[in-house]
């Protein structure tokens, strides 16, 4: 049983399409997660009534349930309530639901690290709430939160590997499919790992670069 290079070449287009789908779900899911996380963390930071409590509940729910279960609920559960979402939408919503909780916690750690002196200073020069968020709180929080936000991004990209349960043909899914049809296990698994590395290594290096760039707020903390 040698290594079947012909097989590897013949399935390249399938893996190509799968990489694109994985990237699409990961990018949209991660961006929406960042948005949801940022909004949630601000609601918590400013102790907004009701919404703040809801956010707390959401964070616990999203961080303490596996993505597979969330996808199962969206794909197989919602149709029972008359809501039928296409599988790609389910995947992006699921990833956002999961990621939003993690991102909110990362942002919160950043917000907590902003010194109260900074807030007092901001107020004393007459900044309003929006200006405080935009120019004082958020930039400093982002600087502190950057490493853990980055880790979350990598985590979310890897989490996309479970979407085959809702019949999406991502990298993990086509690998299982090819193994099931042609039994070229070694070749398929190798391609799988290489594809994930192709996606994740550049992301990791980009994040290292970004972390350096975002160290601007390290003075006087």
């Amino acid at each position: 049983m040698g290594f079947d290079w012909e097989f590897v070449v013949s399935v390249m287009p399938i893996y190509g399409a799968a990489i694109l789908l994985t990237i699409k779900i990961a990018v949209l899911g991660t961006l929406l997660s960042l948005l949801v996380g940022a909004v949630c963390s601000l609601l918590l930071y400013y102790r907004v009534k009701v919404a703040g409590s809801l956010v707390k509940g959401y964070i616990e729910l999203s961080r303490n349930t596996p993505l597979v279960i969330q996808l199962f609920f969206l794909y197989y559960g919602l149709p029972k309530l008359g809501i039928m979402l296409p599988n790609e939408v389910c995947a992006i919503f699921g990833l956002t639901f999961l990621g939003g909780g993690y991102m909110a916690e990362s942002f919160r750690s950043g917000l907590d690290a902003v010194s109260s002196v900074q807030l007092d200073l901001g107020l004393s020069i007459g900044l309003n709430t929006f200006q405080m968020i935009r120019f004082v709180v958020f930039p400093q929080a982002l600087s502190v939160a950057m490493p853990s936000l980055g880790a979350n991004c990598v985590f979310l990209i890897k989490e996309t590997s479970v979407v085959s349960i809702i019949a999406l043909r991502d990298l993990m899914s086509v690998t299982k499919e090819l193994i099931g049809m042609y039994y070229n296990t070694v070749e398929s698994l190798l391609l799988l790992v290489v594809c994930y590395l192709l996606i994740l290594l550049p992301v990791s290096f980009l994040l290292i670069f970004l972390e350096r760039r975002f160290r601007y707020a390290e003075f006087g903390v």
Partner: peptide
């Protein structure tokens, strides 16, 4: 083709009209 890993999931999808 809409491909599922498990038989039970595939039939669930059929009854959901997927």
């Amino acid at each position: 083709l809409l491909k599922f890993d498990e038989i039970s999931e595939a039939f669930q999808a059929l009854t959901d009209g997927r």
